[in-house]
Amino acid sequence: MIEAAALGRAFKVRGRVVHAVRDLSFRIEAGEFVGCLGPNGAGKSTTIKMLTGILSPTSGRVTVAGLDPTRRRTALARRIGVVFGQRTTLWWDLPLRDSFELIRLLYKVDRKPFRERLDELTTLLDMAGFLTTPVRQLSLGQRMRGDLAAALLHDPAVLVLDEPTIGLDIVSKAGVRDFLRRRNAEYGTTVLLTTHDLGDVERLCRRVLLIDHGRLAFDGTVGELLATVPGETSIEDVVAHLYRNGASPTGEPR
């Protein structure tokens, strides 16, 4: 469903060339649930931007849902849903329901399926209480649920989430995780998420990509990740160890 081959992205910063992402290759099959880990500035967001067509790569090749994101941005947009945890894709001044209506128009979703999906998402994400509230007045947890719904109204096959649980309280976080797990299990939606929250990884992801200094440092299951550092038993300690010492993958590369 997502395929990256020797994907690279360089930026020019004050005359110097900085490689935010280099030589990144991985393949995600339909229906997988993959977590993308990495320290701040490792290149996770840059990768997400290249996968979603916001940024074009400087080297390598990527296809998402069978499409080249750079050339087929609008066609791809209909097949993927994207959530940025740090900022909303909803309209600040409008009630949540109006934001959804704008999205319906942007994606040209017919009224009937739209209403059915919205009703379902409203129930699953428990949004009935704040559908008419302007987005700027929503709590972070409510806003994130709204963003999740917004990303799914056009029924995408792939869901890409950049730090979807950042800043959420325990209850909201659990709600978001539960929703994502069910979405993946019941609809077969392929999910790729970046996070700093290892709870997300433990509870959701069957597979982990670890990006460090723009390179793929580990690709494997959570169990395999734990096994990379003998003696450490908690995933938190393992990841901290990898971040500090530079990841040296011993896990089975896919």
């Binding site: 979603t52 941005r73 609008t74 947009a77 994207v82 900022r87 894709t89 942007l106 994606y107």
Partner: peptide
């Protein structure tokens, strides 16, 4: 500056 252009680029409209 606000990053909302990114949000527009993930939509299937110019």
């Amino acid at each position: 500056r606000a990053g909302t252009l990114d949000a527009m680029l993930i939509r299937p409209v110019s």
